[in-house]
Amino acid sequence: MMTHIPPNEGLLLAAILFLLGLIGVMTRRNIIYILMCIEIMLNACGLAFVSAGAKWMQADGQVMFIFILAMAAAEVSVGLALILQMHNQHKSVDVNVLNQLKD
């Protein structure tokens, strides 16, 4: 398989996906969408690691992607539990409801 990969396109794709996720986090008010956009950003970070690892021909990038994967799994389980609690207590998924420290 003697094909050539472009050097920077993978990193560029990672940057575009990360910024799309960032726009989502900043603009959406539904907490489910915010969590999804955080997933997009984490995935873009993993893509940046893997493409950097491919660029320098090292396995470390893929090792980092495995760590990001484990971190994303832990993060999403806790985040979804928090969403369920929020829906139980406030009957809403709007983050602007959560503007009080005390109920």
Partner: peptide, 12 residues
């Protein structure tokens, strides 16, 4: 700007 050279694909 930082134009890298495209290198052959190495499968890790």
């Amino acid at each position: 700007v930082t134009k890298g050279s495209s290198q052959p694909l190495t499968v890790i």
